[in-house]
Design a protein around this nucleic acid. Structure first.
Length: 216
DNA sequence: ACATGATCATTG
DNA sequence: CAATGATCATGT
């Protein structure tokens, strides 16, 4: 649709141009129609923003802005706070065992453009807020690393069934499947390969609220 | 099945 | 009403 942004500043300028616009306005410029059924259009806002900002990755396992190493995340905002957690990536149910420094969560979160979007009202009338380019602070990184190491250790021990969303202060594991029948490979406690429900890493809404707070 | 994009629906 | 567990769409 559009060329990829050629610098952080270029990307930020494009994002700023969207600030205050409604999704209906953006869709019209892109010659797209706004979905009639929000229930069946869960990823539409993120995809619209990708197109509007010149993201390139599509659904390939790459950063949205490959040349800049930047990931795009839209955040639904209600009453001034993120209403939902943020999906990061799927979890290997046998664990990665590579350490925080080399894990997929850290790579995903190295540099993120957060774009707040109103979470209430009709899709057409929701407004885009001021975007923010973020990388984890040392404190953020320490919290994320501690949670990830704990969760990955449990996965490697074959204790994935004990993992509930309550674990993790800022990073959690939750179901991530097409439906209740989806399965993936996992280890059990005796180290045997079994099928289990897929899980994904998510950032808690309380964490994204804190990292977006400097927006105020 | 798993990557991309997330929000929905039920529970406590 | 927030948090947890479940689900929806699309492309490879």
């Amino acid at each position: 649709m559009f060329d990829a942004p050629d610098s952080d500043a270029d990307l930020l300028a494009r994002a700023q141009a969207l600030t205050g616009r409604t999704l209906g306005e953006i869709a019209r410029v892109l010659d797209q129609s706004v979905p009639a059924d929000p229930l069946r259009s869960k990823g539409w806002i993120g995809e619209l923003l990708e197109t509007a900002l010149g993201a390139s990755a599509g659904n390939l396992p790459q950063p949205d802005f490959l040349a800049l190493g930047i990931e795009l995340k839209s955040v639904p905002i209600a009453r001034g706070r993120p209403r939902e957690s943020t999906f990061v990536c799927s979890a290997a149910l046998a664990g990665e065992g590579v350490g925080w420094a080399a894990c997929r969560v850290r790579h995903k979160l190295a540099k993120v453009l957060w774009v707040p979007v109103e979470a209430e009202g009709s899709l057409t009338d929701r407004r885009v807020g001021a975007a923010r380019l973020w990388s984890p602070s040392l404190d953020d990184e320490a919290l994320l690393a501690a949670d990830w190491e704990e969760l990955d250790a449990l996965l490697r021990l074959g204790q994935h069934w004990e993992i509930e969303a309550r674990r993790g202060r800022v990073l959690q594991l939750r179901p991530k499947g097409a439906d209740g029948r989806a399965t993936t490979w996992a280890l059990d406690e005796s180290g045997e390969w079994i099928r289990a429900k897929p899980l994904g890493y998510y950032l808690r809404a309380s964490f994204t609220a804190r990292i977006l707070e400097p927006l105020q």
